[in-house]
Design a protein around this nucleic acid. Structure first.
Lengths: 222, 222
DNA sequence: TTTTAATGACTCTACGGTCATTAAAATGAG
DNA sequence: CTCATTTTAATGACCGTAGAGTCATTAAAA
């Protein structure tokens, strides 16, 4: 768990406010560093430099590097989850909700550069894995996300609005598309890949990539 | 470039054969380690242990850790590229080729556990990146792959068989689906995710996820 | 004057890489 | 074939370094 989950309550003391403020500043700095490096590759020295403080200062606000990264993952993850959740809560058919969800997630590519490096990094449960606590937290956030989207797919399949398939697999595939867009944006130096990818992904979801024509192959394949 | 690209030619000396054999043994061992760890996270000690030799021995066959990983990436990458290429060279419409390509790539999820950790790791060109040579090689292999698939999409779009869209973006999206399947397999502990995902992905490509019904929303969205 | 926050030089550890030592294999003279 | 000698391969103790984490000292605030 993150060492400081500072809600700035109205009755907070001056000290608490200051601490929360510094904590956030450090996390924001860490985010910019993490946008370019993997969690393992980024150093506390770099983070400190980005935040304009000395390395030791970081340890006044976080117990360890692991703790800091965990806080970061939690922060960003909660944001995404909140937005995803509310886009599914709003009224509409499952298809409507899916489209809203995709838009929201793609939106994060621009607002949160962090989304890409963190959430594009795939982590495996179980054996041989880095025991670092922040990956554990990362898996937790992922699982919450997957559950959420899976419930949408389940709903849509039951309503006959989506093709019948393992909803969990569908969730992974959908996330794959989002991540691919993020990677496209970074790797190709695109300014706003989300804008370009949104219509393509929506078309893909609603009618596929291959045009229905007099070519019989793809209709019968498997 | 890899220090030893040992083709075992008929006229090879005994020594060359032995060296090539050991080199391959080490690479194979490294592959099993890499299936569970990131390249940065795996240690030379681990690789040596997996290969049943001492750490120093590795340096008789490779100049450095970087060199070893680079050889590994090259080896696997060339395999994938060769198969992808031949699946595109065989006769058929672009749609046929696409379907073959997807089958081939999904096949790698079982044959090459390595595919996942290496090729799932997204690397960004340019600034702030690890300068490790093997990532450079990785980007090279990726670029060759992307070019290859992009040419297929270009062909298919010009033939009017695929929806009009940036073919490079489409390539990234397709790869995202493959990677997502790999991740699904590992994260969910599925035995043969490829088998399960193949029909879903093909349906997605040929007619989308959302069923064409009397729901107007998705048909007009964007 | 006291209390608190910030600092950065320092310690400790893990890992990449080296190399003197040792074991094994090749050679070849009798 | 066999044993002494040379050549080659393998080893793991050791070195250097990078980076996480500490803490005595200093600066600022109360």
């Amino acid at each position: 768990m993150p060492s400081k989950e500072m809600k700035i309550s109205p009755r907070a003391t001056k000290k608490e406010i200051l601490t929360a403020f510094r904590t956030r500043e450090i996390l924001a700095a860490a985010r910019t560093v993490l946008a370019e490096r993997s969690p393992e590759a980024m150093t506390m020295e770099e983070i400190a430099a980005a935040a304009g403080v000395a390395k030791g200062t970081l340890y006044l606000y976080f117990q360890s590097k692991d703790d800091l990264i965990e806080a970061l993952i939690t922060q960003v993850g909660e944001n995404i989850l909140r937005d995803a959740e509310s886009s599914l809560k709003a009224p509409g058919t499952p298809a409507d909700k899916l489209i809203r969800l995709v838009s929201v997630l793609l939106g994060y590519l621009n607002r949160e550069r962090l989304l890409f490096p963190i959430y594009a990094r795939e982590v495996i449960r179980g054996e041989g894995q880095s025991r670092a606590g922040f990956w554990q937290r990362h898996l937790e956030m992922e699982e919450r996300f997957v559950s959420l989207v899976t419930s949408l797919f389940t709903e849509g399949i039951e309503a006959g609005q989506f093709i019948p398939a393992n909803p969990r697999l569908l969730t992974f595939l959908l996330r794959g598309l989002i991540r691919a867009t993020g990677y496209y944006q970074k790797a190709e130096g695109q300014a706003d890949a989300a804008k370009e990818a949104l219509p393509v992904i929506l078309t893909l979801l609603s009618s596929g990539l291959i045009r229905r024509k007099q070519s019989p192959t793809e209709e019968t394949a498997l």
